[in-house]
Amino acid sequence: MSTSTVTNKKLHDGSKWGNPGPMVYDMSKFGMWLFLGTEILLFAMLFTGYAIYYMKMPEDFHNSAKALSTTFGTINTIILIFSSFTVAWAIECIKKNKVKMMNILLVITILCGVAFLVNKYFEYAHEVHIGNLKLANMQWLGGTGRAVAESAVPSMFFFIYFVLTGIHGLHIIIGLGLLTWVLVKGIKGHFHSGWYTPVEIGGLYWHLVDLIWIYLFPLLYLVA
């Protein structure tokens, strides 16, 4: 890593606790990958639940999924793939010291994330309207337990649908927070070709969100 190209007086070389920047970069990336592993396993159990209930009642899954809108799902898939591309591009830019371009790309990524959530909001509103939420047997119990079936034929598919997309949506929100933090630092000029670890870390997290969605999309929208 050469420092000669950096003219900024306040040099952010990423050194922390006596560890030089490249070492912090290396460790952070390693740590982030481990964390992504835990995230995958968190979703793994939901996928396991999906697999088991699918085997028990394939017809229910098949029929329930028909009530979901493939159009919504496909649009969201494309949005996420595009945002994943822009964040990867942003990292390429900062490697070349193109800070302004990186900031623009990060803004686009964040806007995509927001678009995803807005889209999801309309989709959820639609679900509530046509009664899918009732089928998932979702009702407010306030922690007392003692569930009663809300609809005559409660559907496991919709429960899994709401939990999976809900937890995924939560990850989108966390990812947006991370990327916004990175963007603020980027605008302040903390990053250059010698130090862009937070961009890379935030990007990795955002890709994971995309990765999970890549599986959610066929499992939820295309089983019909």
């Binding site: 009642m57 407010w140 007392t144 429960f159």
Partner: peptide, 30 residues
Amino acid sequence: VIATPVIGITLLLLIFERIFGVGFFNPELG
């Protein structure tokens, strides 16, 4: 690192079950 997320999601499902009354582990709801 590998095992703990599993209990995380399990407990979360249990909490959902109690708050929203969904039947992931409830035989009465499948």
